[in-house]
Computed example of a mutant assay.
Amino acid sequence: MTNLPLWADLLISFVIVLGASFAFIGSLGLLRLPDFMARLHAPTKSTTLGVGGVIIGSMLYFSITDSLSLHELLIAIFLFLTAPISAHLLAKAGLHLELELTRNTQDLRKKPEQYSDKDS
């Protein structure tokens, strides 16, 4: 087992705990939020940041102990490119299926003139 300097140990631990916290908050949001559109927001934002934090921690650890590690960078790039695209497709499917929304979820389709670029 490799002994890391204290600063590296603290930095890596902080980044991994921060990433795990974001992932946990995203998982709780997926469990607790009331409807599909609200539930869609939690894993796409928080969990992406969470996995990103864990990947950064892993990159730091392996870069300090062995040599420069860029394998994790490919995972992060793939994740940050695919998460917004999949969330967009899921949201479009939810709109197409006209899933029921709770009272607190705003449906901006009800007043499209309020959000248009056209001058009145």
Rank of each mutant, 00 (worst) to 15 (best):
L6H: 13
F14S: 03
D9T: 12
G29H: 03
A23I: 14
G52R: 02
P34V: 09
L6I: 05
L10N: 06
S27D: 02
T102S: 15
N3A: 06
I16F: 06
G94E: 08
E100V: 12
R103S: 09
L40Y: 01
H71C: 13
I12C: 01
I56S: 04
E100W: 08
S116Y: 12
L101T: 12
A93D: 15
D117R: 13
L70P: 12
L18H: 03
D119Q: 08
L68N: 12
M1C: 12
V51F: 06
S58L: 04
L4K: 03
I12A: 00
D107Q: 11
S120T: 07
L31F: 08
Q106V: 03
S67E: 10
G26D: 03
I75P: 01
D35R: 05
F36L: 10
N3R: 08
L11W: 13
L68P: 08
R32F: 06
L73T: 07
L18R: 14
T105N: 01
G19A: 08
L70H: 15
I75S: 00
S63G: 03
S63M: 04
G57E: 01
V15Q: 04
L4M: 01
I75E: 00
N104M: 15
S63R: 09
T82P: 02
T44M: 11
D107V: 05
T48M: 07
D66S: 14
D9P: 12
Y115V: 06
A93N: 14
K111N: 04
K118P: 03
E98D: 11
R32Q: 02
G50T: 03
R103P: 07
E72I: 08
P5K: 11
G29R: 04
D119S: 11
G57K: 04
P43C: 12
L101C: 15
L30W: 11
T102V: 15
M59I: 08
A8Y: 10
R103D: 09
L18Y: 14
L73W: 07
G29Y: 06
S13G: 15
T48K: 12
M37A: 13
K45Y: 10
K110F: 13
L101E: 15
L4C: 00
S46Y: 11
E113T: 09
T102Q: 05
L49Q: 07
A23Q: 03
A87K: 07
L89K: 12
E98L: 12
